[in-house]
Simulated assay, not measured.
Amino acid sequence: MTMAYAEVIGDPISHSKSPMIHKFWLDQAGIAADYRATHVMPDRLAAHFSSRRADPLWRGSNVTIPHKQAVIPLLDRLDPAAEKIGAVNTVRPENGALVGYNTDFAGFLEPLQPLLARSHLFRMARMFGAGGAAKAIALALASQGFTIVVAARNLDQARALRASFGPDDSLIAPLSHFAEPTDFAWDDRSGVLDLVVNTTSLGMTGQPPLLVDFSHVPPGAVVYDIVYSPLETPLLAEAQARGHQVINGLAMLIGQAAEAFALFFGQPAPRDHDADLRRMLTA
């Protein structure tokens, strides 16, 4: 039996948890459709989308490394957020046109919504990393009124990232700065929302840890790591041991997938069983 389908494409792709998430939601919603992982090498990207454009059963593709920028010239238009971010992680057909979206922006913000619903005197984010998903995250934070310090190994990359939402060389720093202790005396942080965000791959399975001395982390700061393998990175483990609220990468993964699911299948992702989904993803 033929049925509608969506997919995730990348090179490599076998590690992706997207099929598990979308198939769970399809089953929960009672939608007769499929979601699959498709290995697409860079030299086959144009041919892949040419083929998909002609397939009436195709509902769209999530796009992962290394195709998030390379796919853009193959599309007919971009959603305004994707255009500003300069990267696409979701493509769908719309009246014969291929349209690119970026769901990382909304996916990153989703687990922060209870905090963002409150009023604050000041919002400050210390963001580690300036590549990959960093631009979507920085623009998301800027949209919520955060002052953002960007720390990266490559200062030119950090400077270019800051230029995309507000040039300020006083708000960039080498990543190594945060690995060394500081004797900074924190002032009263009541009324302040402090956020520490890791957007790098440091701490991921097979990668060295992100080195952060917690003298740089304000009291009461929320620590958010977008890495989801392992679920508890060394950064989050130390933050939790020190009493900080933590958010792991699974929250963003599920949040951005929910945005894509609605684009592909025309209805919201069924979120009543998120706890079951999380248990399945971490089994």
Score class of each variant (00 low, 15 high):
Leu175Trp: 11
Ala179Ser: 13
Ala163Cys: 00
Ser170Val: 01
Ser201Pro: 06
Asp168Gly: 11
Ala179Thr: 00
Leu161Phe: 11
Ile172Leu: 06
Phe165Arg: 05
Ser190Gly: 01
Ser201Ile: 05
Asp187Ile: 02
Arg162Thr: 00
Asp187Gln: 13
Ala173Ser: 15
Ser190Ile: 04
Asp169Val: 14
Phe165Asn: 02
Trp186Glu: 01
Pro181Ala: 09
Leu195Asn: 06
Val197Glu: 07
Pro167Asp: 11
Gly191Asn: 01
Ala179Phe: 02
Thr182Val: 08
Leu161Met: 11
Ser201Arg: 08
Ala185Tyr: 03
Ser201Ala: 13
Leu202Ala: 07
Leu171Ile: 01
Asp169Ala: 15
Phe184Leu: 14
Ser201Thr: 12
Asp187Gly: 14
Ser170Gly: 05
Asp168Lys: 03
Ala173His: 07
Trp186Gln: 01
Thr199Asn: 02
Thr182Arg: 11
Ser164Tyr: 07
Val197Gly: 03
Val197Asn: 03
Arg189Ala: 10
Val197Cys: 10
Thr205Ala: 15
His177Lys: 15
Pro174Trp: 10
Ala163Glu: 07
Gly166Trp: 11
Asp183Cys: 00
Gly166Gln: 10
Pro181Lys: 04
Asn198Ala: 13
His177Ala: 14
Pro181Thr: 07
Thr200His: 10
Ala185Gly: 05
Val197Gln: 04
Phe184His: 13
Ser170Arg: 12
Val192Phe: 13
Leu171Lys: 10
Leu161Gly: 07
Phe165Ser: 03
Phe178Asp: 02
Arg162Pro: 00
Ser201Met: 05
Ala173Thr: 03
Phe184Ile: 07
Ile172Cys: 06
Ala163Phe: 02
Leu195Lys: 05
Thr182Ser: 15
Met204Ala: 13
Val192Ile: 15
Phe178Tyr: 15
